[in-house]
Simulated assay, not measured.
Amino acid sequence: MAHLPVRLTPGASADRIDGWDVDAEGRPVLKVRVRARPVEGEANAALIKLLAKSLRVPKSAVSLDRGGQSRTKMISVEGLSDDDLRTRLTDL
Protein backbone atom coordinates (compact mmCIF):
# COMPACT_ATOMS: atom_id res chain seq x y z
CA MET A 1 0.00 0.00 0.00
CA ALA A 2 1.34 3.41 -0.98
CA HIS A 3 0.81 6.58 1.04
CA LEU A 4 0.52 9.95 -0.66
CA PRO A 5 0.56 13.33 1.10
CA VAL A 6 -1.63 15.84 -0.76
CA ARG A 7 -2.23 19.59 -0.52
CA LEU A 8 -5.76 20.09 -1.93
CA THR A 9 -7.12 23.34 -3.32
CA PRO A 10 -10.91 23.17 -3.88
CA GLY A 11 -12.89 25.56 -6.07
CA ALA A 12 -10.33 25.64 -8.90
CA SER A 13 -11.17 26.33 -12.54
CA ALA A 14 -10.18 22.76 -13.52
CA ASP A 15 -9.29 19.44 -11.94
CA ARG A 16 -5.53 19.01 -12.20
CA ILE A 17 -2.36 17.82 -10.50
CA ASP A 18 0.14 20.66 -10.19
CA GLY A 19 3.17 18.61 -9.14
CA TRP A 20 5.29 18.31 -6.03
CA ASP A 21 5.93 20.97 -3.40
CA VAL A 22 7.07 20.97 0.24
CA ASP A 23 4.94 21.77 3.28
CA ALA A 24 5.91 24.01 6.21
CA GLU A 25 7.89 21.16 7.81
CA GLY A 26 9.82 20.48 4.59
CA ARG A 27 7.98 17.26 3.70
CA PRO A 28 7.04 16.62 0.05
CA VAL A 29 3.34 17.00 -0.83
CA LEU A 30 1.50 16.62 -4.12
CA LYS A 31 -0.40 19.77 -5.08
CA VAL A 32 -3.85 19.01 -6.47
CA ARG A 33 -6.71 21.32 -7.54
CA VAL A 34 -10.35 20.29 -7.97
CA ARG A 35 -13.40 22.21 -9.17
CA ALA A 36 -15.61 20.85 -6.39
CA ARG A 37 -16.29 23.00 -3.35
CA PRO A 38 -15.41 21.81 0.17
CA VAL A 39 -19.05 21.11 1.03
CA GLU A 40 -20.28 17.74 2.33
CA GLY A 41 -17.14 15.93 1.18
CA GLU A 42 -17.47 16.92 -2.48
CA ALA A 43 -13.86 18.10 -2.79
CA ASN A 44 -12.55 14.92 -1.14
CA ALA A 45 -14.63 12.77 -3.50
CA ALA A 46 -13.33 14.73 -6.50
CA LEU A 47 -9.76 14.28 -5.24
CA ILE A 48 -10.17 10.50 -4.96
CA LYS A 49 -11.73 10.30 -8.43
CA LEU A 50 -8.94 12.39 -10.00
CA LEU A 51 -6.16 10.42 -8.30
CA ALA A 52 -7.69 7.06 -9.24
CA LYS A 53 -7.96 8.09 -12.88
CA SER A 54 -4.45 9.60 -12.96
CA LEU A 55 -2.85 6.58 -11.27
CA ARG A 56 -4.87 4.11 -13.39
CA VAL A 57 -6.34 2.28 -10.40
CA PRO A 58 -9.98 1.70 -9.40
CA LYS A 59 -11.60 4.33 -7.17
CA SER A 60 -12.03 1.63 -4.53
CA ALA A 61 -8.22 1.38 -4.26
CA VAL A 62 -7.88 5.05 -3.25
CA SER A 63 -8.90 6.14 0.24
CA LEU A 64 -8.59 9.16 2.49
CA ASP A 65 -6.64 8.27 5.64
CA ARG A 66 -6.30 11.66 7.31
CA GLY A 67 -7.30 15.26 6.74
CA GLY A 68 -10.98 15.07 5.84
CA GLN A 69 -11.53 18.66 7.01
CA SER A 70 -8.03 19.95 6.17
CA ARG A 71 -6.30 21.00 2.97
CA THR A 72 -3.40 18.70 3.81
CA LYS A 73 -4.47 15.07 3.43
CA MET A 74 -2.94 11.61 3.55
CA ILE A 75 -4.17 9.28 0.81
CA SER A 76 -3.64 5.50 0.67
CA VAL A 77 -3.50 3.61 -2.60
CA GLU A 78 -4.01 -0.17 -2.45
CA GLY A 79 -2.09 -2.33 -4.89
CA LEU A 80 0.80 0.10 -5.46
CA SER A 81 4.12 0.48 -3.69
CA ASP A 82 5.48 3.95 -2.92
CA ASP A 83 7.93 3.55 -5.85
CA ASP A 84 5.13 2.56 -8.26
CA LEU A 85 3.09 5.52 -7.12
CA ARG A 86 5.91 8.02 -7.70
CA THR A 87 6.65 6.49 -11.10
CA ARG A 88 3.03 6.82 -12.21
CA LEU A 89 2.89 10.42 -10.97
CA THR A 90 6.05 11.41 -12.84
CA ASP A 91 4.59 9.94 -16.03
CA LEU A 92 1.71 12.46 -15.93
Results as ranks from 00 to 15, higher is better:
Ala36Val: 09
Val77Ser: 03
Val29Asp: 02
Ser70Phe: 01
Ser63Pro: 00
Leu64Cys: 05
Asp84Leu: 01
Gly67Trp: 09
Met74Asn: 10
Val62Ser: 04
Val62Phe: 01
Val6Glu: 03
Pro38Val: 01
Pro38Ala: 11
Val29Tyr: 15
Ala45Arg: 11
Leu89Ile: 04
Val34Thr: 09
Ala24Ile: 12
Ala12Thr: 03
Thr72Trp: 12
Ser13Met: 12
Arg7Leu: 14
Asp91Asn: 11
Leu55His: 07
Asp18Met: 09
Ala61Gly: 04
Leu30Gln: 02
Leu4Gln: 06
Ala12Arg: 04
Leu47Ile: 02
Gly79His: 03
Gly26Ser: 08
Pro38Met: 11
Arg37Tyr: 07
Val6Ala: 05
Asn44Ala: 07
Ser54Asn: 05
Arg16Ile: 01
Gly41Tyr: 06
Glu25Pro: 00
Asp18Ala: 15
Leu50Pro: 03
Val62Ile: 08
Thr72Cys: 00
Val22Asn: 07
Leu80Val: 02
Val62Glu: 02
Pro5Arg: 15
Arg7Trp: 09
Arg71Leu: 11
Lys49Thr: 10
Asp65Val: 15
Gly19Arg: 07
Gly67Arg: 03
Ser63His: 05
Asp91Cys: 09
Ala61Ile: 03
Ala36Trp: 07
Asp82Gln: 05
Arg7Phe: 10
Thr72Arg: 12
Val34Pro: 02
Asn44Met: 00
Asp82Trp: 07
Gly26Tyr: 13
Pro58Asn: 02
Pro58Thr: 08
Glu42His: 10
Arg35Asn: 00
Ile48Glu: 11
Ala45Trp: 06
Pro10Thr: 11
Ser63Ala: 09
Lys73Met: 06
Arg56His: 14
Arg56Val: 06
Arg66Asn: 02
Val22Phe: 04
Leu64Asp: 10
Arg37Thr: 02
Ser76Lys: 11
Ala46His: 01
Lys31Phe: 01
Asp84Asn: 12
Pro5Ile: 00
Lys59Arg: 14
Val34Asn: 07
Gly26Trp: 12
Lys59Cys: 07
Met1Gly: 13
Gly19Asn: 09
Gly41His: 12
Leu55Pro: 07
Arg33Lys: 08
Arg71Phe: 00
Leu55Met: 10
Ser76Tyr: 05
Leu85Val: 06
Arg37Cys: 06
Arg86Lys: 08
Pro58Met: 05
Val32Ile: 13
Ser76Glu: 13
Met1Trp: 11
Ala14His: 09
Gly68Leu: 01
Ser76Pro: 00
Val6His: 03
Lys31Leu: 15
Leu8Ile: 06
Lys53His: 13
Leu4His: 06
Ser70Val: 02
Ser54Tyr: 11
Met74Arg: 14
Leu51Asp: 03
Leu50Cys: 05
Leu50Gln: 08
Gly11Asn: 14
Lys31Gly: 11
Ala46Leu: 05
Val57His: 01
Leu4Phe: 06
Leu80Cys: 05
Arg35Lys: 15
Asn44Gln: 12
Val39Met: 02
Asp18Cys: 15
Ala2Arg: 08
Asp21Val: 02
Lys59Ser: 09
Asp83Cys: 00
Glu25Gly: 08
Leu80His: 03
Ser54Cys: 09
Lys59Gly: 13
Ala46Gly: 04
Arg35Gly: 08
Ser60Ala: 15
Ile75His: 12
